[in-house]
Simulated assay, not measured.
Amino acid sequence: MQRNLYFDALRGIAIMMVVAIHTFYACEFESWLSICAISMREIFNMAVPLFLAISGFFIGRMVFEDKRQVFAFWKKQIPKVYIPVLFWSIPYFVLAILEGQSILENVLLFFFCGYSIYYFIALIVQCYLLLPVIQKKMLNSVMGGVIICISMICVALISYTSITKLPLIVFAGPVIVWLIFFWLGVYISRNSRDYNIRWILIGVIISFVLMVIETKFRHEATVEDME
């Protein structure tokens, strides 16, 4: 099959965004320059949603006629991402044990992709597991609205509580937090592109403004906690 250069370019942009996320620091709302820097940082946060949407777009085209095909898909796709993350989690696990940390806690972190940013693999695995259900029962505008509302509630709870003091896998790993992006990829792959992009742009702008407001709130809450 011939590669689609458009999606290769999108993946490349998403990869550069991931690098920027982990090397770019901006959180002070002191001047217009710092606000612009924070805005850039928020734009870089599109990396994970972009990866999820692209993944949903490509595997969303798959057709499952029976349970045997579903299990064959899981058997093929899940080990591709899960086995490598187990391998790269070994150094984290060994160092944690050598430092005297809880063995049980680290066993759970090891098998549930809880180290570093490996939560993304747990997220992808959950998306693979949900794909057949999404295709059969969730590809309509009503379900899309339900998913985005639940996702927004989850993000609000994370922002307004101290849940972020927990491991990253706990608050960023559950698929419902990100599901709307994977759902969008699947939805676009299974439907004709007759939608009005104007409403999409409006949604993007509103989302961007809300992201900046959330960052400001989180920064102020962090400063207050430190004081």
Rank of each mutant, 00 (worst) to 15 (best):
Met46Asn: 02
Arg41His: 03
Ala20Lys: 03
Ile21Trp: 01
Met46Glu: 02
Met40Asp: 15
Cys27Phe: 02
Cys36Asn: 14
Ala14Val: 09
Tyr25Val: 05
Ile15Met: 12
Asn45Tyr: 12
Thr23Val: 07
Phe29Pro: 00
Ala47Pro: 04
His22Val: 07
Ala20Asp: 08
Phe29Leu: 00
Ile35Met: 06
Trp32Tyr: 14
Ile21Asn: 05
Met17Trp: 01
His22Phe: 10
Leu50Trp: 07
Pro49Val: 03
Phe24Trp: 15
Leu33Lys: 03
Trp32Asn: 15
Cys36Phe: 15
Phe24Asp: 08
Val48Gln: 08
Ala14Met: 09
Phe29Asn: 00
Ile43His: 04
Asn45Leu: 14
Phe44Thr: 02
Met16Pro: 06
Ile43Pro: 09
Ile43Glu: 10
Phe29Ile: 01
Glu28Gln: 04
Thr23Cys: 11
Ile38Ser: 00
Met46Gln: 07
Cys36Thr: 13
Gly12Glu: 07
Leu33Asp: 02
Trp32Gln: 14
Leu50Val: 13
Glu30His: 11
Val48Gly: 09
Pro49Lys: 01
Val18Gly: 01
Met40Leu: 15
Ile13Ala: 10
Pro49Glu: 04
Ser39Thr: 13
Asn45Lys: 14
Phe24Glu: 12
Thr23Ile: 13
Gly12Val: 03
Cys27Tyr: 01
Cys36Ile: 15
Glu28Gly: 03
Cys36Ala: 15
Met46Ser: 08
Val19Ser: 06
Val19Asp: 11
Ile38Cys: 03
Val18Asp: 02
Pro49His: 08
Ile21Phe: 08
Phe44Arg: 03
Met16Ile: 10
Cys36Trp: 13
His22Lys: 10
Val18Gln: 02
Met40Val: 15
Pro49Phe: 00
Ala26Arg: 09
Tyr25Cys: 02
Ser34Arg: 05
Val18His: 03
Met16Phe: 14
Val18Leu: 07
Ile13Asp: 08
Leu50Pro: 00
Glu42Thr: 03
Glu30Cys: 09
Thr23Trp: 08
Val18Met: 05
Ser39Gln: 09
Phe29Gly: 00
Cys27Leu: 03
Ile38Asn: 01
Met40Trp: 14
